[in-house]
Write a protein that binds this DNA or RNA. Sequence first.
DNA 1: TGCCATTTGACACCAAGTCTCGTTTTTGGA
DNA 2: TCCAAAAACGAGACTTGGTGTCAAATGGCA
Lengths: 198, 198
Amino acid sequence: MVGLRAAKKEATKLAIVGAALDLFELQGFEGTSIDEIVAKAGIGRSTFFRYFETKEDVVLDSRWDGARLRCMLAERPTGESPCRSVRLALEQVMEHFHVERKRMRKQVRIIKSVEALRLRHFYRVTLWERIIAEFVAARRGTHHSEDPYAMAIGIAASGAVRAAFYAWDEGRGHRALPETFRAMMDTFAAGLEKPPKL
Amino acid sequence: MVGLRAAKKEATKLAIVGAALDLFELQGFEGTSIDEIVAKAGIGRSTFFRYFETKEDVVLDSRWDGARLRCMLAERPTGESPCRSVRLALEQVMEHFHVERKRMRKQVRIIKSVEALRLRHFYRVTLWERIIAEFVAARRGTHHSEDPYAMAIGIAASGAVRAAFYAWDEGRGHRALPETFRAMMDTFAAGLEKPPKL
DNA sequence: TGCCATTTGACACCAAGTCTCGTTTTTGGA
DNA sequence: TCCAAAAACGAGACTTGGTGTCAAATGGCA
């Protein structure tokens, strides 16, 4: 036991998320006020903002803000080529999301339907671009803003993640995340000069 | 003359933008309330919202919301390879921004300093990814979500635009936009399999 | 039990954005 | 030139997200 205090905090957080997602599902994100959420969760208004900075944060998963990806990249062996390191680390991430795909459905539906959420979501993924470029540049002994190759890897890899999510979402899950991600990375690896046969 | 009405509207819009940018420069975007802007512009509060949907829209240029890019792509000759069409169309866009670079400085400084503006800006550029992919897929007779090559072109090209802006901004304009854009596109064209020599 | 630190909720406050409504200004036709 | 319809405007009330303060409640621990 880590103490009654921590347990209660965890319970409160779950209560907020539960109440909020239920209401969002029922009457929409923008059609739900924070007052309604706190009423349903049985807490005070101030408490809500002690757990989440904004209403958006209830939907967006704070665990994927970049630090985690940075760690995963740092753990790759230094002998590996940077491009391969990025690919393998992100494949791992995609596998993770693949396992969680059931839970992600509801979340994605809400994110897609609200502009404010789409903004934040896109912004976050675009940040990965920078993180990856910095990693590649560091391994190559360059600086990312001076190294087109490092930037290109960052753009391609984070873009491949986005594309995989699109295909997964629009294909109603028909195509798995890791699979699409690998296909995209292969396309980038081969070069865009000459289009592949149809 | 297109009528006194239209002329006055144009003047009012300019007055709002002028007053707003001055105040943003002076006391920051978030440190400036809409009431201050309308007071300085000499208009009513309601009028502000008749011209701009949000405070952010005053800073962001509504002319680059995607429709314009879509037009430029559509105008490319059909004989051209899709990849080349995208490249040439975007080079044109970069040239346009290059010419406007003086005016863009102030705007970029404000955008960079405010999270809400960064969000919207990134979102907009990421939308280009989709527009480009749809164009390439249409020319190839495929659907973008089923065509990794089309998606890859979209990701690479819009990413190259972003990268060019980064380099331009962080290098204090030392490196020109069109130049960096071309370097990025060349890197993508060659393929990311084997890194270029340093 | 009793003291201290943390957590909590009530409340006041600010600013963005929406809506309504009555007034002013422009337009185009008689 | 005058007038009526249409368009633009300003005032102000209202909702809601987000911040800050403060006193009360609650868990941790001796």
